[in-house]
């Protein structure tokens, strides 16, 4: 064991890594500083804003940006709750029950996951119109819940439930729901945490689905609202940049706080060899 020898290769690779990391951070840094800079300085190449103001935000909030933010939070939160609920029930059944048709159901879930989500969007719009919820937050929430990734993730986690624990609960006379709630759920809780944060971030950022489902100004999400500002004929860069920062701040904060769960979700979701 002991300390490793520092090779020239390691030094060069570390320097390179730091440089590339800077390239990745720079756009984020630029947008955060730009948002609080004076609107007249938008095009200046300053590394540090010469003047800190809230002017850009004041102008941004002439748009219904709070409503957009609220819609984004609502969609992400409700999708997260519904995904976690349906997926943990289904994942448990797929992992721990032996039933007729199990293989078919599971294969169907897996195959759907490999297909590009976007190809079903056009018919989905049709379905939402039939349900009368086109241009409504539920038109974004429902398809998100239908996507089988969560089921797959929760199946992986549910494999770790010791069968003896389930047997013991059965012998003690616990019903199915009770067993789920007091035996299964505590074991898969870390998985639910990972899935929750993963769903929240991905739903927040699912631009395409939001774009095709939501149209009226007050129903937009924050990302859509900003996209619309950006495609205006005359782009007002100050409020636009403030909006872009506003769209990023909540989700980046959540990511930083729950990074551990999030990375866990990604690794567990990968097909294991």
């Amino acid at each position: 064991m002991g300390k490793k020898k520092i090779t020239p290769y390691a030094v060069i690779s570390m320097i390179l890594l730091v440089l590339v990391a800077l390239v990745f951070i720079f756009p984020f840094y630029r947008i955060m500083t730009g948002a609080f800079n004076d609107p007249t300085n938008v095009w200046k190449a300053e590394l540090f804003p010469s003047k800190l103001t809230m002017q850009n935000f004041v102008r941004l909030f002439k748009q219904p940006a709070w409503k957009w933010l609220y819609n984004s939070v609502f969609i992400a939160l409700v999708s997260m709750i519904l995904v976690c609920g349906t997926a943990s029930l289904a994942g448990y059944a797929l992992a721990k029950k032996r039933f007729f048709g199990q293989k078919i159901v599971f294969t169907l879930f897996i195959c759907a996951m490999a297909l590009p989500k976007q190809v079903v969007l056009v018919p989905l719009v049709r379905i939402m119109s039939t349900f009368g919820i086109y241009d409504n937050v539920w038109a974004v929430i429902l398809p998100t819940v239908g996507w089988p990734f969560g089921v797959f993730l929760m199946k992986q986690f549910s494999e770790t439930i010791p069968t003896e624990m389930l047997e013991a609960a059965r012998i003690d006379g616990a019903g199915e729901l009770r067993t789920f709630w007091s035996v299964v759920f505590p074991v898969v809780k870390p998985g639910v945490g990972a899935l929750a944060i993963f769903t929240f971030i991905n739903t927040w950022n699912d631009y395409f689905l939001q774009l095709v489902m939501l149209t009226s100004t007050e129903n937009l999400t924050i990302a859509l609202g900003i996209a619309r500002l950006q495609s205006a004929d005359v782009i007002e860069y100050g409020p636009l940049i403030a909006g872009a920062a506003l769209a990023a701040i909540p989700i980046v904060t959540i990511f930083i706080c729950f990074q551990k769960y999030f990375t866990q979700g990604i690794t567990m979701g990968a097909v294991k060899g």
């Binding site: 990391a21 990745f24 951070i25 756009p27 984020f28 630029r30 947008i31 730009g34 971030i201 927040w204 950022n205 631009y207 990302a223 859509l224 900003i226 996209a227 950006q230 636009l240 940049i241 909006g243 872009a244 920062a245 769209a247 990023a248 989700i251 980046v252 990511f255």
Partner: peptide, 15 residues
């Protein structure tokens, strides 16, 4: 390296 994914495509494109 995950930052651009989290910030979302709209913010990334704007900047």
């Amino acid at each position: 390296f995950y930052l651009p994914v989290v910030t979302g495509s709209v913010t990334v494109v704007v900047v």
